[in-house]
């Protein structure tokens, strides 16, 4: 379970990226985070990966307040969250197969296990014959699939896809969303950040709307939303955390 509890982020130049944002994401849930550019969607991902610390509030991943993690604990956190970045972050001189296997390499898996898992993901994402190619040889839609496959390789509990349909035509974008839904059906929690929620076109899906760093709408039932505070209080007692306190803003970058 992921809990954002009154999370704020103000950058050193004074830009307020998030302001008092609270929501929870349950295991195996499919959540769409939407809002215009600059609403704070990418900041959510970066906070979740502990690229930097929130200026205020707390973020829990599986009952652990990630702000309290030591530097040595950050790699373990990041292995739990599969991130599909908006700017892809693919390594241009690594093949598609090598890029997808990156997370498994880091985990120290054997060559055979990596090959098996990569082949499976290539099949799942429809990239079966693309393994030996380099990212520069792929189309936008294919690149997005590689990014998703790479994020899924270490079998994370959560997949955070940041604008996975950003530069794609509608047909390809729908294919990507369909792929993300399939992944969710297989048991992975999916958080998809997009500025264009119309593409999802499914009123049953949960939608979180951000505007200028504030959460302005969450389609989850109010009863569930009100449970955030009780959930956090419960964790505070278990983990011995102190109540939310505004932290001094600093650019502490972890990567």
């Amino acid at each position: 379970m992921i809990i954002f509890d009154q999370v704020s982020k103000t950058f050193p130049n004074g830009t307020v990226a998030l302001e008092g944002v609270s929501f929870t994401v349950d295991p195996k849930e499919f959540v769409i985070v939407t809002g215009p550019s600059g609403a704070g969607k990418t900041t959510l991902l970066r906070l979740l990966l502990r690229e930097f610390l929130p200026s205020g509030g707390r973020i829990f991943v599986d009952k652990v307040d990630i702000s309290t993690l030591k530097k040595s604990g950050i790699p373990e956190l990041r292995r739990q969250i599969g991130a599909a970045f908006q700017d892809f972050k693919l390594l241009p001189d690594w093949t598609v197969g090598e890029n997808i296997g990156l997370g498994l390499e880091i985990l120290g898996e054997g060559e055979a296990e990596i090959a098996d898992r990569v082949n499976h993901l290539l099949e799942l994402t429809g990239l079966k014959d693309k393994s030996p190619l380099f990212p520069g040889q792929l189309s936008g839609g294919e690149l997005q699939r590689v990014v998703i496959a790479r994020a899924l390789a270490p079998e994370p509990k959560v997949l955070f896809a940041d604008e996975p349909t950003g530069n794609l035509d509608d047909a390809t974008a729908r294919q990507i969303i369909s792929l993300l839904k399939d992944i969710n059906k297989l048991g992975t929690t999916v958080i998809m950040a997009t500025h264009n929620p119309r593409l999802v076109n499914d009123p049953k899906e949960r939608l979180i709307v951000l505007e200028k760093g504030k959460l302005v709408k969450d389609t989850r039932s109010k009863a569930k939303i009100s449970s955030i505070s009780s959930a956090v209080e419960g964790l505070s007692e278990v983990e011995g955390h102190k109540p939310t306190k505004k932290k001094k803003d600093h650019p502490e970058k972890e990567t």
Partner: peptide
Amino acid sequence: RREIEVLHLFGAN
């Protein structure tokens, strides 16, 4: 630099 950044983001120690 880019490769190192990506490795960090994917949990490399």
